[in-house]
Design a protein around this nucleic acid. Sequence first.
DNA 1: TTTTGAGTTGTTCGA
DNA 2: GTCGAACAACTCAAA
Length: 471
Amino acid sequence: MTSTTLVWFRQDLRLRDNPALAHAAASGSVIPVYIVDDTHAQQWQPGSASNWWLHQSLCALNESLNGNLLFFKGDPLQIIPDIISQTQIEQVVWNRCYEPWQIRRDKTLKAQLQNVGIQCQSFNGNLLWEPWQLTKQDGSPYKVFTPFYKKCLQHQTPRFPVPKSESIQYYHHTLSSLPLAELALMPSINWYQAFTKHWRPGEEGAGFILSQFLNNNIADYANNRNIPSVNGTSCLSAHLHFGELSPHQVWYAAEQITAADVEQCEPFRRQLVWREFSYYLLYHFPSFPEKNFNARFDHFPWSKDDNLLIAWQQGKTGIPIIDAGMRELWQTGYMHNRVRMIVASFLVKNLLQDWREGAAWFWDCLLDADLANNSASWQWVAGSGADAAPYFRIFNPVLQGKKFDPDGEYVKRFCPELGSLPSKYIHNPWEASADFLQQHHILLDQTYPSPIVDLKQSRQRALDAFHQIKQ
DNA sequence: TTTTGAGTTGTTCGA
DNA sequence: GTCGAACAACTCAAA
C-alpha cells in the first residue's frame, strides 16, 4: 500500500520541519526534485548573489539527501509531467510559495496533474499564518502593520514544527539529473570570493546561525539590532528566504530560549511578523514589486540620473555611512538592516531616484534578496507603500551615523581610507579643514569623494517634491 | 454611517 | 546642551 511521491523542493531546502517531505516519506518512497525555473519568473529571476547562495544550498541539500536530489532546468509544467511519464509516481507534493508568478504556475500544475489522476498536495512550510487566513472584520486585507500584528497574535498560534522523517526511502529509477554545475547558478564574474568567508548556506549553517543568535544576541536584540558595528541582528534572512529553516522553527526556538522572560523574545518575534506582513501584502496586492502601492506616487517627480545611481551603487557618494553600507553589500552580499534604511532613504529622497532602481540593485546584490521583503521595504522607505513613513521623515545620514555608529567603527571597516579620521569627522569629513584632513591622510576628491549632494538642499528638494503630489 | 484614535525605525528649529 | 513643537493631513481599523 505504499506509494511513490515526487517532492518538489523550492524555497524549503531543508529536511527538518518540512511538511511536504514528511508527508511523502510517511506514505512510501520518494523522488526529491529541484527545478531551476527559467520560464515563469520573467523579470523576477533570482539575482546573481541569490544564485550563488542557491548553488551552495542545493549542494548541501543534495548531500543530506544522500545524493538523491535530481536537478532540472526549464519549465516545471513540462518537466514534472515528463518525470511522471517515466516513473510510477502517484503523488506530487510541495510546500507553498507566495510570489505571484509562483502561485499562478503552481495552480496550473495542480490542475494539470489532477486532470490526469495524479494526486497533488501543497503544504504550509514558509509562513506562520497563511495570508488568506487573516482579514479585517469586513473581509478585506490589512494595510497597517500594528492591527495586522495584533490579529496574528490573537489568531491561532502557529503550527509546531513537524518532526524530521526518521528515514527516507528513495524510489529506484533511471531518470538522469543534470549535474549541479550545469544549472549555471554560479556568477560568471568572480566577485563572490568573500561570500564564503561570511556565510554558510544550507540547513546546517542555518541551524548554527540560529543557535548563535539565540545564545548570544536575542537578549540584547532590542538594543543592539540597530548598531551596525555589532553583530546584534539574527542574520537569518537568507536562510529563511531559501527555507533552510522555517519561521516556525525560529518562532518556537526563540520562545524556548527566553522562556524565563517571555517579553524578551517579543521584539524579535515582531520582526518575524514583519516578514509575514510583507508576504501578506504581496499575496493580496500582487503588483507590489512593480507599482506604487499608493497611486499618488505615480506622479512623483523622480529625476533619473545614472551618474548619481552609479555613485550610490559603487559606494562613492562622499557620505561615509552610505558608502560603507553600499560597499558592505557589494563585498559581503549583505547589509545591516539599519544601514539599508539609511542608504534607501538617501537614494530615494536625497538623490530623488525611483525606489525601483534601488530595489533592482538590492535584488541583484543581496544574498537574502526576497521579493516580498524587498518590495515592501523599498516602498515603505519611499513613502509609497503600506503604512509608510510620513513624507517629512527624511534620514540625515550624518546624524544617523553619529547616533548608531558613534565611533565610526562600521564606516572604517568598509571605508578604510577614512581609517585614521577621529570620530568627530568620521561621518562628515567635508566639514573638516583641508589641513586637518591632510594630517589624517585624506585629500577630498582624491582619496575620498566630496558629497555628491548637499544634504540640506536635497532634503528641501525632497520635501517640495512630496508636496507636489499631495493634491 | 459616523466617530475616534492611531500610525516601525526622524529632523529641525527655536526657546 | 536639552527639550518640545512643528512638520500635513490622511488613511486605516474598529467601536
